[in-house]
Structures are given as C-alpha cells and as structure tokens.
C-alpha cells in the first residue's frame, strides 16, 4: 500500500498550464497570493474565483481535484470562520442569542478570511498539481541561482530537495517494515497515553535513523563514483525556456492584480 503513494500530487495531463515554465509558475503563484491579499473586499472574490476556475480549465484539471486540497484544512477553515463570526466588533447586529451575537461586519470578515484561506490553498495546489516535483526543484534552483553569487547554496539546496523526494517513499516503506517487525515482537504502537505512545516510537525511530545514515553514506559514495562534484560545470537534462505561453500567463495574473487593486 505504501508503495502506491505518489509524491506530491502531480496530475499528469497535457495542458496550457502544465507547459508553463516552472520558474514562471512559481513567481505567478506568489503574485497570485499577493493579489488575494490586495483584494480585501467581498467583491474582489468574484474575479479571484473566476481566475481560479479559468486556470483549472486551462490546466485541464477537474475542479473537484482542486477542492480536495482544501479537505485537510476544513477544521482550520471552520475554526477561522466561527472565530471571526462571533468575536469581531461590529454595529449591525444580525442575530443575538444570550450574550453571543453575530454582526454584519463579523459575517463579512468571516467569509473574507475563510475564502482567503481557500484561495491560498487552491493557488498553491494549482502549482503542485501541474508541475512535476523534479521540475519544481529545477525551477527553484534556477530561481535561486542569482543568490549563489553571494554564497547562497542554491544548487546544494535543490539537490537536497530532489534526494529527499527520491528517498521519502523508500524510508516510508522501511518505517512500515520496521514497525511490523517490532509489532511481531510484541511492540505496541497504538495504546497508552501520548507520552507512552511517543516512547513506543523509539524502537521504530532508532533503527530508521541508523539505516538512513547508512543509506546516506552509500549514496554519497555512489554519487562520487558517478562523478558528482557539486554544481560547478554541471550541464542539465532539462532546459527551461520562456515561451509565448508564459507571457500570456503573466498578463493574466497581472490583470488579476490590477482588478483586485481597483476593487480594493
């Protein structure tokens, strides 16, 4: 079962958004987040929602998939909504039960804040659903590379990320194996209070760490045997190219920002 996990949530179809340069997509995602914060009124939510739906269409993604990203956040979402609903200052009382009252301002605030959260998550999902993790790390490396001149380890960071991506499933599988082995010897991971359960994790974590270090040693040796010597003089398999599609996407996001600023 653990073998089936796919990393990230990449949705492999061909589309306009999939074809965009990862660097452009990363920057546009950030720009989109800025737009969400600029458009603070309820009216601004209409163009933002329209933008997300259009992007999903351009990305060939079912909207259901985008909404799935919100699911893990539902508790925070409900919490944010209720908190703002009941505890904001306001004049126009809509509903009053005993000492708790719901004001019109509170309701507006609650909707705005929770919608903002939804926008942020769907915006980020749009990026991860349409970009393979390898490509994403490539894009990040390229974006950070100007910082390398002032000593920022851009290549090393990207390499670490891609190695982490490669080894997460391997380590998960191993954790599963160790857990079963310990359970077969009578280890109990499920009962007891929090402290007891945390202590039960020790026989799982110690072998996992030992093996992770051993793997790291092996991998370093294998990388050296394959001539790895840092980012210097390295060529890349993937070439990133900005095409006219990227300009179209930039224009669309710029338009959204302008609209959000105007609506306020």
């Amino acid at each position: 079962m653990l073998k089936d996990i796919t990393l990230g949530q990449y949705y492999p179809v061909k589309s306009f958004v999939h074809d965009l340069d990862p660097r452009v997509k990363i920057i546009l995602t950030i720009a989109f987040i800025v737009a969400v914060f600029l458009g603070s009124s309820l009216w601004a939510m209409i163009p933002i929602t329209a933008f997300i739906l259009l992007s999903a269409k351009a990305a060939n993604l079912p909207v259901k998939l985008l909404l799935k990203g919100i699911k893990p956040l539902r508790i925070i979402l409900i919490f944010t909504f209720l908190l703002n609903l009941f505890f904001s200052a306001g004049e126009t009382v809509l509903l009053q039960v005993w000492k708790i009252r719901v004001t019109q301002e509170g309701l507006m605030l609650a909707i705005r804040f929770s919608m903002r959260l939804v926008f942020l998550v769907t915006g980020a999902s749009l990026l991860t659903l349409t970009t393979q993790p390898v490509v994403l790390t490539d894009g990040l490396e390229r974006l950070m590379s100007p910082l390398a001149r002032i000593g920022f380890p851009a290549h090393e960071l990207a390499m670490m990320m891609s190695i982490a991506l490669r080894f997460i499933p391997t380590l998960l599988e191993e954790a599963d194996k160790i857990m079963k082995a310990q359970m077969a010897r009578g280890a109990d991971f499920e009962s007891g209070n929090l402290l007891q359960r945390a202590r039960a994790m020790v026989p799982l974590l110690v072998p996992l760490f030992v093996s992770a270090f051993r793997r790291a040693g092996d991998l370093a040796m294998a990388m050296e045997a394959r001539c790895y010597h840092g980012g210097e003089g390295r060529t890349r398999l993937r070439v990133l190219k900005i095409t006219h599609k990227d300009y179209v996407a930039c224009a669309a996001v710029a338009a959204l920002i302008v609209i959000c600023v105007i609506i306020g």
């Binding site: 390898v134 891609s162 991506l165 490669r166 391997t170 991998l219 294998a222 394959r226």
Partner: peptide, 8 residues
C-alpha cells in the same frame, strides 16, 4: 535503493 539519485 542506495545508488539511485533522482525520483524519475
């Protein structure tokens, strides 16, 4: 497992 570097 310990000599492949990339996830593809």
């Amino acid at each position: 497992d310990n000599q492949l570097v990339a996830s593809i």
